[in-house]
Amino acid sequence: MLLAIDLAFIIEKLVLIVIVVMASLVIAMYATYGERKIAAILQDRRGPNRAGPFGILQPVADGLKLFFKEEIIPDFSSKFLFILGPSMAMLTAIMAGAVVPWGNQIHFFNRDISLQIADVNVGILFVFAVVSMGVYGIMIGSWASNNKYSLMGGLRAASQIISYELAMGISLIALLMVTGTLSLKEMVVQQQTGYWNIFYQPLGFLIFLICAFAECNRTPFDLAEAENELIGGYHTEYSSMKLGFYLFAEYINMFVSSVIMATLFFGGYDIPFLNEANYDQNWMALFGLMALMTKVVCFIFLFMWVRWTIPRFRYDQLMNLGWRVLIPLALFNMLLTGALILFKQNNWHF
């Protein structure tokens, strides 16, 4: 463990961390561009097309604009907490990338380098913990704003995330019963040799997907920032890059949850109908990464597609869906999975 300090190991991990963080930031940046472009296309518009060819430089321009905006910190607000809020939102958003297997091992400088920052054997629980921490950024920021709309947004976000975490956890339990492991890496390896988990857990995936929408505060569950009733929700009082952090955190969350869903249910970096072992290791790792990214892009598109299709829920509808529909459904799914596994162990006899 930590006792044996291997310098090359540390450098390798540091490089990986930097790459993952940078990649999440860049992807989040381009997710904002994608969001605007997709929204435009779905509404028969053109979308950003001024900055650079096809508006490709638009996120850079947006970022620069946010940087140079005036910073406003409201009077009476706790200044420290006001800054802590967006920082925590950003931190927790980035952290979940630590346990995701981005690809198989690559062979480089005579070393086998795993494309995963940490293969902890409670990987999925780690993701879960990070997700549950994500609400603090919103709550602290909203409370420190000293604004009733912000506070409303924060409270909504908190109760929404807590409610949907339950269903998410239960749907995950069913998945864990199938795979028998909590390590994301092992799950991917299992799916490489067998079938993807979506075929074993279609209902579980649906529940997980809905909960992921809720956890990321995306439409149709974006009540925490419902602009027509709460102005901007929890980030009403925020300006400049602190607002940028909140918006960025949302997109990073979206990216990370897409990666998690791709890894859990769609084979991660697995390329379907291809036996990876037959080909060169490094190339396969690269293609695996690209396969993962393709799946992720599909998911991000789904997120945006849904955003521009389904209108926002009312708050009581949201709670009803969470507590009265999703949790019983997830419990049913769990029981069904358990029963089927038992039957299978008994060779399909009672």
Partner: peptide, 11 residues
Amino acid sequence: TFSHIFKKKPT
């Protein structure tokens, strides 16, 4: 909404 991807843009 998906079918609108293929529609002509009036902009």
